[in-house]
């Protein structure tokens, strides 16, 4: 297993809007040990997604540093960090297997090799037999499975997930959540998972980081001491409720302001 650790050190992010500088994130410090599943929650517009795009190397922080495995992130590092977006964002003219193989194609991995790797990932995400389907022939949940397979195909140490289940219906969301936990337990990636759903945040993660309203600051860092594997029964237990309530108190205050 690759040794990886995401370190976000004193990061602030400002956006220029109509000549004014609008702070999105303020002084974020966050260390994620190898193999940990971390959920990031916070009120709408708190900069959760911005935080992920910094780790993805899609933009540079205004201040501070983001490191992966000790290396400063200044550009996307697709071999270390895989990204999964809210929408599956599949290329509509490519089959499922070609979509999954796409990151490898960008790196000019030989065709046979990349198709084999992609087929393995589709099997891991439960899509064996759907290799040749085009995106429009797949359901929303299946598309997101393809996106997860694509995020995993380069075997990155870190998986960034930006509200990946937000546009799915609740049942699909619950099934995919369990699927994600199974995949995670098989691959032991370090996961940064942004979500609006407190339920999802607690259910999936080892740890929930709570951000404040804009500009986002870390207001709480909650260890989820529920045993694994997680089960639906736990979600009605007392401990689950206590954890969820503690997070909700932060969000509630922020959303009221």
């Amino acid at each position: 297993m690759t040794r990886a650790l995401v370190a976000i050190q004193g990061v602030s992010q400002h956006f220029g809007v109509d000549g004014a500088s609008v702070p999105a994130l303020e002084d974020i410090d966050l260390e994620v040990p190898d193999g940990q599943f971390v959920s990031v929650v916070g009120p709408s517009g708190c900069g959760k997604s911005t935080l992920l795009s910094l780790v993805a190397g899609l933009r540079l922080p205004s201040r501070g540093a983001v490191r992966c495995d000790g290396e400063l992130i200044t550009a996307p590092m697709p071999r270390k960090v895989g990204m999964i977006f809210q929408e599956a964002n599949l290329l509509p003219w490519l089959s499922a297997v070609d979509n999954v193989a796409f990151p490898l194609k960008l790196r000019r991995v030989p065709k046979r090799e990349r198709l084999e790797a992609a087929a393995r990932m589709l099997e891991l995400t439960g899509l064996a037999g759907f290799e040749d389907r085009l995106p429009h022939q797949l359901s929303g949940g299946m598309k997101q499975r393809v996106a997860i397979a694509r995020g995993l195909v380069q075997n990155p140490a870190v998986l960034l997930m930006d509200e990946p289940f937000a546009s799915l219906d609740e049942q699909t969301r619950m099934v995919l959540g369990d699927e994600l936990l199974r995949i995670w337990s098989e691959t032991r990636k370090t996961v940064l998972f942004v979500t609006h759903s407190l339920h999802e945040a607690v259910y999936l993660a080892d740890r929930v980081v709570v951000l404040s309203a804009r500009p986002g600051r870390v207001v709480d860092d909650v260890l989820v001491d529920l045993p694994r594997p997680r089960s639906f029964a736990m979600t009605t237990g007392e401990r689950f409720g206590v954890l969820k309530d503690r997070i909700w108190q932060h969000i509630k205050h922020a959303e009221r302001r």
Partner: peptide, 19 residues
């Protein structure tokens, strides 16, 4: 979004246009 996704997976500017 598609261009951004390609960029996250390491596509160069030329690859973004071509693919």
């Amino acid at each position: 979004a598609l261009g951004e996704t390609a960029r996250a997976f390491g596509a160069t500017r030329a690859q973004q246009i071509l693919y």
